[in-house]
């Protein structure tokens, strides 16, 4: 009787240990990986995507000034040469436009920031940075106005 009771206690201990180990394994497997963050508080991920998928310019009325929106698909963005070619409508005040772009991944960066009044009378360069911060590509954006 006494021996049977001890065996039962031993079995319960084993079960408890297995349960705790199982839960620990599950936690380890399911818990989020802790990515480092950069000086701006943004996650540094494993993503290596680094390209511009579309580009736009808006004028003082917050409307696009471009005849055609350059995209990777229509060839006006060359992701190999890292160039963007755009044509602005007649009458565009190209001295004061705001650039915006879409990127290949959400965790990419653009340096310097877009969305600021910018003079595009001369080609402008922007550096795209991949999510893992290991790849940097210098894009040159050239805009000409219809004349």
């Amino acid at each position: 009787m006494n021996r049977g009771y001890k065996q039962m206690l031993l079995q319960m201990k084993k079960n408890l240990l297995l349960t705790i180990l199982g839960m620990a394994a599950l936690y380890a497997a399911s818990s989020c990986r802790k990515y480092p963050i950069d000086k701006d508080g943004l996650l540094i991920t494993d993503n290596t995507s680094c390209y511009m998928s579309s580009f736009n310019l808006v004028g003082s009325d917050n409307q696009t000034v471009l005849v055609t929106t350059p995209t990777f698909a229509n060839g006006l963005i060359d992701t190999v040469k890292c160039t963007v070619t755009a044509i602005a409508k007649f009458g565009t005040n190209i001295s004061k436009v705001k650039p915006y772009c879409s990127l290949g991944a959400n965790d990419m960066l653009v340096e310097p920031f877009m969305g600021l009044w910018t003079d595009f009378n001369q080609p402008k360069t922007y550096t795209l940075v991949s999510g893992n911060r290991q790849i940097r590509k210098l894009y040159t954006i050239t805009v000409t106005v219809q004349k």
Partner: peptide, 15 residues
């Protein structure tokens, strides 16, 4: 008005 144009074309109602 830094860098502003000195014309405004293609204006419409409510512009």
């Amino acid at each position: 008005f830094d860098g502003s144009a000195n014309y405004a074309i293609t204006l419409t109602n409510d512009g």
